[in-house]
Design a protein around this nucleic acid. Structure first.
Lengths: 199, 199
DNA sequence: AGATTTAGTGACTATAAAGTCAATGAGTTG
DNA sequence: CAACTCATTGACTTTATAGTCACTAAATCT
């Protein structure tokens, strides 16, 4: 067999990425050393560099994996949703699995390598697209106040990121998304809905 | 004279703090080295440590200076303001002078020493207090929708911080507060005001 | 089976940056 | 003016960590 060896290598690579993602989520991305990642993955320090030329390349790989996965998941969940409320719920649900790592992305975002930031922007573009479409439909129908969709979306993302970034304040133990997500959703909806359409 | 020497020392300390603030604002807080600060202040590397036991102590000193100043300024500006609109404008105006450094605080906030974070929290408490009071008055008067004031405030601060953190996106050259502040203000007000009170 | 390739290893190197300290000399005091 | 104090200096030490490389052993090839 020829593929066995390549397969093993890919498996090791995956293990490094997965372990890195866990350590990043627990302790932060930029403060994590390549040696911590190696230990978490159960490989030697040098092995990390056999798979990723630099630490930056590792970070990018981890975040691009998350980005691709979350963007896909969001697209799937959101494209079946008609109303803004459903899209927002889909957003929270799609993020839930990666909350720990996504939180670090939000917190350390601007200090991360450019290519890593791109992944975050892509995730936001995906959700922005669905939110904007649903919002425009509802503005047409009169259930959402007329306003620039960019501002509507930035208000939502700003609110959400503020809660994620300050999770230790808003939900000291356990997931902020679980504990505060529904409340944020309701509040934001009540802000953008016309008064006849409050429920 | 006895005081001349002490005076010189305090002047040097101030110069280090001011230079550090400038370098922090330009390049980031945590990526700035003590040697860069020394060079910017025109002193030797060792001098920085003659004034601050550790790098962390320097960072805390810089940020506490900003915190005290901004909090005072906000209090002054905001306590004369009756309505929410005026308080928000005061908020933006009070921040304007320190926009560069404040932006870094927002971006790096969670990774900074605990005492530095406290300064940020204090600034936010100051503004939160004024916003909440004005909002409650206006809810009573019927010009602002009824909602939990904490959520109202977090929506505002989340929106503002999102624009500050992504200033390079929202205003590639020059101040975001100048270029986007008024727009954010108007948008936020239209969200929280009752429909009869839109203007 | 013997030769060859390569995933993985871990000790080692290079580098950057925080923090130290003995020396200096300007300012202060008696 | 002589003695002393202390703010400032910058070369030096220490430490942390990214990245390298000669080597091992297991898989693959001929």
């Amino acid at each position: 067999m020829k593929g066995n060896r390549q397969l093993q290598k890919q498996a090791t690579r995956k293990r490094i990425i997965r372990s890195a993602a866990r350590v990043f989520a627990d302790h932060g991305i930029l403060v994590t050393t390549t040696e911590q990642v190696a230990r978490a993955a159960g490989v030697a320090h040098g092995t990390v560099f056999a798979h990723f030329r630099t630490q930056e390349a590792l970070i990018v790989a981890v975040i691009e994996e998350l980005g691709a996965d979350v963007a896909g998941r969001l697209h799937e969940l959101a494209s079946r949703s008609r109303g803004v409320a459903a899209v927002l719920r889909a957003h929270l649900k799609g993020l839930a699995e990666y909350e720990g790592l996504y939180r670090r992305l939000v917190v350390e975002g601007m200090q991360l390598p450019a290519r890593a930031r791109t992944s975050l922007v892509m995730v936001q573009s995906a959700i922005s697209h669905h939110v904007s479409e649903a919002a425009e439909r509802e503005m047409e129908a009169g259930s959402v106040r007329r306003m620039p969709v960019a501002l509507l979306f930035n208000t939502w993302i700003g609110l959400l990121h503020h809660y994620l970034a300050n999770a230790d304040l808003f939900s000291p133990h356990g997931s902020v998304l679980d504990r505060r997500g529904p409340e944020l959703c309701r509040h934001f909806l009540s802000l953008i809905r016309t008064e006849q359409n409050q429920r």
